[in-house]
């Protein structure tokens, strides 16, 4: 395989991460927020893969696998919560779910 600049891969990961972060902050829909978390996790995974590829070691991919597992579990639980929240409050507006304020 041809060599790809390592920094550019990391740069791509940063851009994706920042975009996910922006989405997390500006969207009020819970489902979209979960999606943005997925984007961020994916960006992190990309960084791991790039690093593993940079050194030619399997560890990067192992870490990606773990991130993947985490994402899967998080989505499972998170979407279950979204369902419950929608049933209770008939809305997905995260700003209206502020019962936990001190």
């Amino acid at each position: 395989m041809a060599s790809i600049p390592f920094e550019h891969a990391l740069l791509l990961a940063s851009v994706l991460f920042a975009l996910g972060l922006v989405a997390l902050l500006i969207r009020r829909n819970l489902i979209v927020m979960l999606m943005s978390v997925e984007i961020m996790l994916n960006a992190a995974g990309l960084a791991f893969i790039a690093a593993g590829s940079r050194w030619g070691q399997p560890d990067g991919q192992v870490m990606f696998l773990l991130v993947l597992t985490l994402a899967a579990a998080e989505v499972g639980v998170g979407l279950g919560l979204v369902l419950q929240i929608y049933r209770r409050y008939k809305t997905l507006d995260v700003d209206r779910l502020s019962e936990m304020q001190g």
Partner: peptide, 18 residues
């Protein structure tokens, strides 16, 4: 003094973490 920061607003917490 810290109680007002506990708004219950998820996005504020995220912004705080950021």
């Amino acid at each position: 003094m810290l109680v007002p920061t506990q708004t219950g607003q998820l996005r504020r917490y995220a912004a705080g973490m950021l």
